[in-house]
Write a protein that binds this DNA or RNA. Structure first.
Lengths: 225, 225
DNA sequence: ACAATAGTGTCTGTGAGACAGTATCGA
DNA sequence: TCGATACTGTCTCACAGACACTATTGT
């Protein structure tokens, strides 16, 4: 191999872009910011941070999430690394994207320093509209949306979008939103029964029969070892 | 968000590490090089290249594959991006790993400039031994091995490890190697019948009944859109 | 009583798993 | 004929899909 003598290759900036998903009003939402500075001033974008020279990728992602939402313990995973040459008009920037999932109840956020506002955007609306986002961020979101729909079928990521205690109907709704189709109640319950644990709590106050609350049970194998 | 003002962050090198898998003698093999220079002189490592400032990640991967194997049209996909701070003793290097699959018949390789030798290593032996590889390359291989076993179950990647014309027994063997277990012939054939197309070619010369040759049929949806 | 949602029973079809059988080559 | 591998038929069982039914709350 010819590599590893880096002197002949210029260095470049590496950033982490964050895709923070949540569910609000039975819709999949993503956390976006409105940029206050050029390039793309006043345009919506994914939140992101540059990677510190003494910082791992995961640490940078964690820092970005904390800066944007104040949260330190939410689920996130690396999504994909984007490296088109012209994706940033200023300079060459490699973007390592991370996807985070958080139930709305935990999600708080506030505008950062170089940001006009932070808000939740409806993902399906965004992707089907012709609204422009900064950089290649719309394509990144499209990829994440696709991966989310995929992973919900063979992992337990959907649980990260509901609270610790949840109703089966609520969990089913999350699956339906991510999959983009209705599911049969009885079948869904059979399918996820091995991953859930009944508690002795129930909802109350609604004008109908109360729901039993469940919690997640064992872990699912979605990573090596 | 606080990012995107890169002046306060140092730049770093970004490399592509290549995991070229093939099957030889009914075993999963990976292409390794023996390094001729420090760090890790005389130690085995994954082939890799630094990313040129005017080069996308996919282009860099393609270039690396061509430099190492001479091949230009083999299947590859981005695997994961590794960014531990101390993974390279010299400097901060972010590694974007790419996984390539190629049938042995197509695979030719020759030692590059800063390389002592290029060879195929048995993956299972490597991972279960205490043999040391350069940098974090052994962990990268372990991750790729896990992903390969996963993806073979819900994608058609296994087809990239056989020639254009293949026998169903040969394809089944590839599945068995990737999955690490024996499969039932009849069941396997039912499962992949929708992805394969019968040809009117057969093997000959073996001391047993000839096999019909098949080819891959339609495409499987493993990417967005 | 009624509206509304929670929750269950069960039939059907599909597909994986398991195994036994038949087919066709070279030697 | 025999060894070896190719290839097929079919039983069983688990599970997804589909639908109908019962249960329990607030108003």
């Amino acid at each position: 191999m010819k590599g590893y003598d880096s002197s002949q290759f210029e260095k470049m900036s590496v950033a982490v872009d964050l895709l923070v998903f949540t569910i609000e009003n039975d819709r999949l939402k993503i956390l976006l910011i409105e940029r206050s500075e050029d390039p793309y001033a006043n345009v919506s974008a994914l939140p992101g941070v540059f990677i510190g020279i003494k910082e791992t990728l995961d640490e940078a992602a964690k820092r970005g999430i904390r800066e944007e939402t104040g949260l330190t313990d939410i689920y996130f995973e690396q999504l994909y690394t984007f490296g088109e040459v012209e994706r940033d008009p200023r300079m060459r920037i490699i973007s390592v994207s991370y996807m985070a999932l958080v139930p709305l109840e935990k999600l708080k956020f506030s505008a950062g320093e170089r940001t006009l506002s932070v808000y939740l955007e409806d993902v399906e609306e965004l992707l089907s509209s012709d609204k422009k986002l900064a950089f290649d961020h719309k394509e990144i979101i499209r990829y994440a949306r696709w991966r989310l729909a995929n992973k919900v079928e063979y992992t337990d990521i959907a649980f990260h979008l509901v609270d610790e205690y949840f109703t089966l109907s609520g969990l089913q709704k999350v699956y339906e939103i991510l999959l983009g189709k209705k599911l049969y109640k009885a079948n869904f319950r059979k399918k996820i029964s091995s991953m859930t644990e009944e508690t002795d709590l129930v909802t109350s106050g609604d004008a109908h029969r109360p729901s039993r609350l469940y919690r997640k049970m064992d872990e699912n194998g979605d990573s090596p070892q």
